[in-house]
Amino acid sequence: MSTLMKGNFTPAQAVESAPQQADSLEQRFEKEALKKLGGSIAFVAKKKVLWGDEVDNQDATE
């Protein structure tokens, strides 16, 4: 029986935990790095990167 809810009576419907998908290696890494954030630990959350920025080459040689 699920123990997600606790009380002094039995609800009409049981609450079961949904099966969770295992984290990908990328997700695992980003979670671990976030826990240790600071100092030299910084990272790129790959799913949040906005791709497609044009880089002005003239500025780049400044």
């Binding site: 790095a33 954030l37 100092g39 910084a42 959350a45 799913k47 906005l50």
Partner: peptide, 10 residues
Amino acid sequence: KKLGIVVKPF
């Protein structure tokens, strides 16, 4: 924000 950088600067 744009680059998804997660950092606590030195």
